[in-house]
Structures are given as structure tokens and as C-alpha cells.
Amino acid sequence: MKRIFVDIERCMGCKMCELICAIKHSNSKTLFSAINEKPKPISRVKVVEFKNSSLPLQCRQCPEPYCYFACIAGAIRMENGNIVFDNDKCVHCYSCVMTCPFGTIKIGEENTIHAVKCDLCPDEEVPPCVAGCPTKALFYGEIEDFKKLLEKRKEKCTT
């Protein structure tokens, strides 16, 4: 199945993916207006920093997800291998937040306090965060193809 992957060596921690994601999930879909929206649009990806590196973290689409098992509301479903999150069903108990081992589930602000997670933007061919990454650190596709890409990049560096 297709997932979002990151070439850690290329990630500069610029957080462009966070910005693009928040705009994508805003009402207005433009940076200019999204900034003033209330509640503030929330990015589904979070760039974390560690040991002088950075890493955009987003839902890993686990094959047997803890969040699915923990959800008391039936708001998290498995559909064709993807984990689908139904905001309308969410009762903001945060059981998914409690169990996601990657810590990728975020909480909305006051009047939208339901949980949010990356949905891989099913209406787009390539998730906008991936398309908009200025260093092409993000990749969307099968794991085998991502590994091939890493190999290719390595070769380029050594030759």
C-alpha cells in the first residue's frame, strides 16, 4: 500500500509540509485567509526534531492499528488497507492519541476538539505536503519504490 515516506537526510525541518497541510485542511484553502480562520486549521503532519535531525511524522497506516482497536466510537475504520478517520463519529475521548505509538494523532482546538490524523488526501493524486516539499524529502508511494529512490540518490552522491 502507498504511504508517505521521508528521506531524513534531505529534511531541513522547514515545516513547509505542516503549512501546506494546514492550508489543505482549512476552509478557504489559501494561506492568506487560512491564517485568520477560527478555529485555526490544523496540520496533520508534525515535524519533530531529534539528534540534529528532523522528521515529518504523520499517520503510518499500520496494518493492525492500535488506534483502531482503541477507538470507542467506531470512528476509525479500515478501508482497502487505509485507516479512515470519521470526524463526525469522533467523541474526542482521545483513546487513539493514547495508543498511537508514533504519536501522530493531534487534537483540534477548543471548538473542534476532535482528534485529527493524516488521511493521505484521498482527493489528490499526490498529497500536497509531498508535492510541495522544497527539498523533495517527502515521497508518496510503495515502500519498495521509496527504497529504490534512496538507492538511486545514494549512487548519485557517490559518483
Binding site: 521521508v6 503510518r60 499500520c62
Partner: peptide, 14 residues
């Protein structure tokens, strides 16, 4: 026992 994939493409088990 529960397999997943880390963001940089490594297999990970919980």
C-alpha cells in the same frame, strides 16, 4: 507482534 513502517521506510514492531 504488530508490524508497522517507520517514516524512513524501516520495519518496526510493537
Amino acid at each position: 507482534f504488530r508490524e508497522s513502517v517507520s517514516p524512513d521506510g524501516k520495519k518496526i514492531f510493537f
